[in-house]
């Protein structure tokens, strides 16, 4: 019968494929408030590992009934036994995440996107420039570099926070600042009375930087307003375009390079980014 003939034509090919929107279940092992608005969550997937990822990659975290948000992984892939997310209560989903405590189960997809090209940094000096919550993905990179310290040259960390009280990962920041094998520079926009350090934008720290530009890779993450001024400083140092890496923030809904929200001109931030070299975005007016 012809009807069944047409039915035989129906493909079942895609039915066995994984639904890309289906999260896996992770459990919060520990939640530590870092500031009034930021909480560090340590998580582990219930079945299996997070898999291989690069510093700078992100996951999509769900609050069922509310929605999903992209969150950068802030721990290094070299640290086993789970992964960490630093969440700022900025919207409805992130607020709900930060109300969770240890033991809570969280649906998570990912990791997604392209992280920092750590291979390219091997044998090079690395300059890390972070502003505010931008320190979260950078922490993953810093931990990664420090775990394999001998493979990299000089490490510079230039960190800017709005206020001293808004500094994330304070214990780690202190330990970085006291390590002899890191050039650590920090500044705040608005100082309090106790603050003895630099005051001003993160770009004001470039004054202290001395690097061999051709042997240096830069990694940048911070609020959108930070990118152009930092780029100018890096260009002033004469870093090659392909050695400046920027981690971009965009609205992401699917994380799969489909929904269109995160496009930077024609580039999907979620798929080709969030980390892109300046060589890749030089011609994209929407990048900065």
């Amino acid at each position: 019968m012809s009807s069944s003939a047409l039915e035989e034509e129906l493909t079942t090919e895609y039915e066995d494929w994984t639904n890309l929107f289906l999260p896996r279940t992770a459990q919060i092992l520990k939640s530590t408030p870092l500031t009034a608005t930021d909480t560090l969550h340590r998580l582990r997937f219930q079945n299996g590992d997070i898999g291989d990822y690069k510093p700078g990659q992100f996951v999509m975290v769900s609050m069922l009934g509310i929605g999903e948000v992209p969150i950068s992984i802030c721990s290094s892939p070299t640290h086993i036994g789970g992964f960490e997310l630093c969440v700022r209560s900025a919207g409805t989903v992130t607020q709900a995440i930060n109300e969770l405590n240890a033991g809570a189960l969280v649906p998570i997809r990912g990791p997604y996107g392209r992280g920092f090209s750590t291979e390219k940094m091997v044998g090079h000096d690395v300059m890390i420039i972070a502003g505010g919550i931008g320190l979260a993905p950078m922490r993953s990179l810093i931990q990664y570099l420090l775990d394999q310290r001998s493979q990299y040259g000089e490490i510079w960390i230039l960190f800017g926070a709005k206020r001293p009280g808004e500094v994330l990962f304070q214990d780690e920041v202190l330990s970085w600042s006291s390590r002899p094998d890191i050039h650590f520079l920090m500044t705040v926009d608005i100082a309090n009375r106790a603050w003895r350090g630099n005051v001003g934008p993160v770009t004001s720290l470039f004054h202290y930087v001395k690097v061999d530009p051709h042997n240096t890779c830069a990694a940048v993450c911070g609020p959108p307003v930070m990118y152009r001024p930092v780029l100018r400083e890096l260009q002033h140092l004469e870093l090659p375009d392909a050695q400046m890496f920027f981690s971009f923030e965009r609205r992401m809904k699917c994380g799969l390079g489909k929904c269109g929200h995160c496009l930077i001109n024609g580039h999907y931030c979620c798929k080709e980014g969030p980390v892109l070299s300046y060589a890749e975005i030089r011609e994209l007016p929407e990048a900065m």
Binding site: L10, T11, E13, Y14, E15, W17, T18, N19, L20, L256, G257, K258, K271
Partner: peptide, 16 residues
Amino acid sequence: MRDGNADTQFLARSAN
């Protein structure tokens, strides 16, 4: 929809 992460729900319907 085939590019990169294949959108299987779209592709399944499209194929049929």
